[in-house]
Amino acid sequence: MFVPTPPKDNLSSNLLEVRGLTVNFETVDRSVEVLRDVSIRVGKEEVVGVVGESGSGKSTLAQAIIGVLDIPPARITGGIVLFQGKEILPSSDGKANFRGKGINMIFQEPLTSLNPVYSVHDQMEEAVNIAEPKMEKKEKEALIRNSLREVMIRDVDGVLNVYPHQLSGGMRQRVSIAMVLVQKPNLLILDEPTTGLDLIVQRRIIGLIMSLKKEILSSILLITHDLEVAAYMCDRVYVMYAGKVVESGSMKDVLKKPLHPYTTMLKNSVPEGYVNEGTLKVSSGAPPDLRHLPSGCAFHPRCQFANDVCRSKIPELKAQKDGREVACWLYE
């Protein structure tokens, strides 16, 4: 009897797949599309970046995946999210609520994500209880200490007994990483993990995340506005503008030869040279107000290549060579 072999498509190697996700924020009198048909995928042991400026929808994307989006005002109007082949969104109540079960998230400001009225030890214990409910108390204790040592905290006893506000920004972020570590997530979402930290601390946290990734974590989805951080950490990158993915590809290729004019502008905006080495090549204008999106391609008012098609029709994300994608009429 002939048994057809199951098609070996990309799906099986994808840890996370978001297909056509559309999210609206609704108020009494209007509805604003914050994410417009966003599709991304994260492979196993891959570090994927989502880069964009404020208002691009990158944080909403992360919140939708992990299910902490406030519904309402947000409403998921379309698209599905697959994690390890299973559909986690849409779910019956409209939320994914997937925390602690394979996906974990580290937020930008650890002071708001850590509970101010519990000591570090108590919060760590809670995380361990969720991850390893059957473990004995002694083992749990050992796991907590081990995980704090893992994130390069030297004075473990000192840190365990204090409250989050008594720690410095870098230490807080280390604690929130340690809490995530005990749960051994398959996918870690980092939402601006180092924004607001000092340079040396930022670099240490990034170094820490990357070294832990090698040992324990399998995949990372990094949400950032900082192209340099993304360039340092990511294998692949998605560039978002006004709620849409406008370009994707391997980080190296995108940096070397950006296809979308917005990516080019983003790259040129980062000062690299010394003084008197010329001005930065950047066009005028600002990211659009999502309530009043320009017609056609949202970037066209700032784009030097804009023509009539760009003003009237929204470009679709089209595959290019080397596994890259770009949503721009220049590449039709």
Partner: peptide, 20 residues
């Protein structure tokens, strides 16, 4: 400070070990 600064070309392993 300068060693910790990221640019498009940085790819060395900066140690996370030392605490300030």
């Amino acid at each position: 400070l300068i060693g910790a600064n990221l640019s498009f070309t940085s790819n060395d392993g900066f140690s996370a070990a030392r605490e300030s």
